[in-house]
């Protein structure tokens, strides 16, 4: 078990034991409770635009102590706006973590990779732990890491779609080629999909809609916890071979070679 405890997620000098991060799309007290208690989340995202409220439903009040806040810049349409929202998050006492989300499209909410690189560069220089949400593109991932990103957060499928690893091949390339942690964000719709991403070598999973729209929230949160742990174990164990057709040939095809 000792080895298990040492398997930690490091982000910008901070250490986490959980590899489940709660996204920000659909907020409720019940969701945050389930994510922290049943899914073991140590990082919870919040939209700064929603936190900037006078009273009533200020979501910052919902975040339990000891949980790391990950404010996001949703609503930003340019690098400049993202930077300003990050500054506001700092002023509101949200800490130094920031998840960059820049969208120029209100229909699909797909990230603007180019603007994200620029915002990452600015905020990393200012000492933020920058986690950029991006469309999985190897060149962009390299640029983000060079710009100072603490991790790279590629989308698996359109946000809120619960469609799973639609961009699987490209996420695998990022996992293989990028040294920083790859956190799969957006589109993960079930524990099985989360498990698969972890098995591929993802460092963590961010999800929200999959939990928020589940029939039994705490039970689904707990299922995600188990699935992520199982996927992580499988990745660390090294996957076994996959037989593509029938059984392995008992007589090797190359058995005739004589030297």
């Amino acid at each position: 078990m000792k080895e298990q405890q040492e398997d930690v997620l490091e982000l910008g000098g901070h250490t986490f034991h959980s590899r489940f991060i709660l996204g920000s799309g659909k907020y409720s007290l019940a969701l945050i409770e389930a994510a922290v208690r049943d899914a073991g989340a140590e990082i919870v995202t919040c939209a700064v635009r929603r936190a900037n409220t006078k009273e009533h439903e200020n979501i910052l009040d919902y975040i339990p102590k000891g949980v790391t806040l990950l404010p996001n810049t949703s609503g930003a349409r340019t690098a400049d706006e993202a930077v300003r929202i990050a500054h506001l998050a700092r002023e509101l006492g949200c800490g130094d973590f920031v998840k960059i989300e820049i969208m120029r499209d209100t229909k699909y909410l797909l990230p603007d990779n180019e603007a994200t690189i620029r915002a990452t560069e600015t905020l990393a220089k200012e000492g933020f732990v920058v986690l950029p949400y991006m469309y999985p593109d190897l060149n962009v991932a390299r640029d983000l890491v060079n710009a100072g990103a603490a991790a790279v957060m590629p989308l698996a499928a359109p946000i809120g779609s619960n469609k799973g690893l639609v961009t699987k091949e490209f996420i695998q390339i990022l996992i293989d080629e990028i040294d920083a942690p790859i956190i799969v964000d957006a589109g993960i719709g079930s524990p099985a999909q989360a498990c698969e991403a972890m098995q591929m070598g993802a460092a963590a999973i961010m999800a929200n809609t999959a939990l928020a729209t589940a029939g039994d929230l705490p039970l689904m949160a707990s299922a995600f916890k188990d699935a992520i742990a199982a996927g992580r174990k499988a990745y660390r164990a090294g996957l076994g071979r996959v037989l593509t057709r029938g059984a392995a040939a008992s007589d090797p095809l190359t058995g005739f070679l004589r030297d």
Partner: peptide, 11 residues
């Protein structure tokens, strides 16, 4: 339902 009073930020 969860009532929301503010969902946008002027920056």
């Amino acid at each position: 339902l969860q009532p929301v009073l503010n969902d946008y930020l002027y920056v």
